[in-house]
């Protein structure tokens, strides 16, 4: 029996992925995040302030990526209502967040997306990020004008492009995704995105398998060289992230027999220098239904805040800004090597 067959047999015998992970921890093969913090003399992370108000507009997406921690796709029904968006806007107006970070799914597929962006732009928010998967721009005629819409609203675009060639990208994100992503990037470049200083276009690299991200700076150099040489594409920064061992990527790890090795690699690569920069320390993550979480990963795991009873509908920044972060073994993904966050590596 090869490793893959063995892994499949193991998963068949266990009712769910979370049971599998629990079993591994019980077997003491993988220590808990809390144990590793304690062993290294590091206190559990506590947030210092709320700088980034990250809003997930829903899990609906035109793509079904193999690694997606959201498990987003065309069949997902969970999207944020306009009423809930209005509550977000009221909170944005009342608080001094630096950045609103809109994510999904494909957030553009939410019917109230454009209204929400325009309303945010009427507030004093300095930075407005939209995490755009690129292919949505070409998905149908309704989205072809998205580049102009982004430009008119000074949106900072952050887009996934797992590699600078089709083979690796399409294996992770689906057939034809690379080609469409390139077309979308060329459309964005054409109106100045990725070229002009104020029209920021950042790309996101994540490994297409059970290995960690390489050095962000070096990858950025390679991406810039290769994308410009082959496709005449420019962008500002590359954000290199690690894959978190949750949802679809966790399923892949277990089914491919990589779970133990990947987790061992994350644990052995634990880097205390990443702790101060963890995104959970300055971010609050808002789910489509108004629930609040420490980060998008905790949201997908439905790992609640340690502050009981706090939702979007009774938002009180004084109860949230110095909260203890709810952690789990997936947190090793953010503390491995140079670290990982929605803004990229945490250390050089």
């Amino acid at each position: 029996m090869n490793a893959s067959e063995k892994a499949l047999q193991q998963t068949e015998a266990i009712s769910s992925l979370s049971d599998y992970v629990l079993l591994e921890i019980q077997n003491k093969k993988i220590p808990s995040f809390f144990e590793v913090l304690k062993k290294n003399g590091n206190p559990p992370p506590i947030s210092t302030h709320i700088d980034v108000f990250q809003v997930n507009l829903g899990y609906l997406c035109n793509q079904t990526c193999k690694h997606c921690h959201v498990e987003a796709g065309p069949s997902r029904k969970e999207i944020m209502s306009k009423e809930t968006m209005q509550v977000c806007l009221d909170i944005i107006k009342e608080n001094a967040f630096r950045c609103v970070d809109i994510t999904g799914g494909a957030p553009e597929m939410n019917p109230h997306f454009r209204w929400f962006v325009e309303e945010i732009r009427k507030t004093k928010i300095k930075e407005l990020i939209v995490r755009c998967n690129l292919t949505i721009i070409l998905a149908n005629a309704n989205y072809h004008d998205l580049p102009e819409f982004f430009k008119n609203n000074s949106v900072h675009i952050v887009s996934s492009l797992p590699f600078y060639n089709a083979l690796r990208t399409d294996r992770q994100r689906g057939n034809g995704v690379f080609e469409k992503s390139i077309q979308a990037l060329q459309m964005l470049n054409k109106i100045g995105y990725g070229i002009e200083k104020h029209l920021i276009l950042d790309l996101v690299y994540n490994p297409n398998g059970a290995f960690l991200s390489a050095n962000q700076k070096k990858l950025e150099e390679e991406y810039k060289t290769e994308l410009f040489k082959t496709y005449n594409i420019s962008f500002h920064h590359l954000i290199a992230i690690h894959n978190m061992p949750i949802n679809r990527f966790l399923e892949y790890l277990i089914n491919s027999g990589n779970y133990e090795d990947y987790m061992s690699m994350l644990v052995s690569s634990y880097n205390p220098e990443t702790l101060n920069g963890l995104m959970c320390k300055n971010t609050i993550s808002v789910a489509w239904n108004g629930n609040l979480y420490d980060c998008d990963f905790n949201q997908m795991l439905q790992l609640p805040l340690t502050v009981a009873g706090q939702t979007l509908f009774n938002f009180n920044i004084n109860h949230l800004k110095h909260r203890q972060i709810a952690t789990g073994k997936h947190c090793f993904g953010c503390t491995a090597g140079s670290g990982s966050s929605c803004q990229g590596s945490l250390t050089e």
């Binding site: 590699f163 060639n165 083979l167 290995f211 991200s213 990858l219 390679e222």
Partner: peptide, 10 residues
């Protein structure tokens, strides 16, 4: 192999 794949070799 791990290192080379990580560093982006095809």
């Amino acid at each position: 192999t791990q290192e080379s794949v990580t560093k982006g070799f095809s």
